[in-house]
Nucleic acid binder design. Structure first.
Lengths: 126, 126
DNA sequence: CCTCCAGTACGAAACAAGTCGAACTAGTGC
DNA sequence: GCACTAGTTCGACTTGTTTCGTACTGGAGG
């Protein structure tokens, strides 16, 4: 950043100045056992499934899901998903938006996301 | 049982008197989050993968895997896999043999077992 | 500058899971 | 009956996970 205060016409970044992703494992670093662990929680399955099914505007702010848990709990779960490599998160001003790393996950673990999309929560889901 | 001490010629059980499986969830009761939880452990992934790859004699006794852990630990992990619905276990005399419930798992969670078969343990695998 | 607001960081309490030793159970074979 | 053996059960310890309250950070808007 900086270094460009005047007299510039050519585009610096192709699309629209995307914020950098928060720290996450690279595609080659994804570990099956870690991803499965991240997905073995009903709340986190709910989050990922919702992102997969209702992916409308590319990615969603963290509070968009109708999850009535305290904010600190949500932070915890979103971070678990990001650190496992399931979600990518970017900071947009105040809010942190998430989307599923479908490309990477389909490359490394083909079929896994389909299982998540087809999942339905148990009846006693809280 | 009992009730048949003499004069019986017709076969009672079609094939070869298979011992009944230990208690396990029915196919319809399998829960994705539970199965993923059971598979989110390196040792258990090792067990299931080994069964998938080297399935020679249909099913294997519990001590057949070259796992150097105390027996009580192995009991724990094999039970976790059975109760999640990943393995079926039958008692053959002294030993308890396990095999993967491929039919049920492929029906409910297609592709999942392929991921397990393709898994390779981390380098620092204990 | 001050407030509002999305979300984080920290830390504690509650709970679940992994690990393992020691004692036990139950077939098998002598 | 006795020893052997595959595996279980129990209980203790340790480690990790979940949950959440409270305090904090940092951009946006007046």
């Amino acid at each position: 950043m900086g270094m460009r205060t005047s007299m510039v016409t050519e585009p610096d970044v192709p699309p629209a100045e995307l914020p950098p992703p928060l720290p996450e494992p690279a595609r080659e670093e994804l570990r099956l056992e870690v991803v499965l662990g991240a997905l073995s929680d009903p709340l986190r399955l709910t989050i990922v499934r919702k992102l997969l099914l209702e992916r409308e505007a590319y990615d969603h702010p963290c509070g968009w899901f109708g999850l009535d848990r305290p904010k600190s709990s949500l932070t915890h779960h979103f971070r678990a998903l990001r650190e496992a490599g399931v979600l990518r998160q970017r900071q947009y001003g105040l809010e942190r938006r998430s989307h599923v790393r479908t490309e990477d996950l389909n490359a490394r673990f083909p079929g896994l996301l389909d299982l998540v999309a087809d999942w339905e929560p148990a009846s006693d889901q809280k």
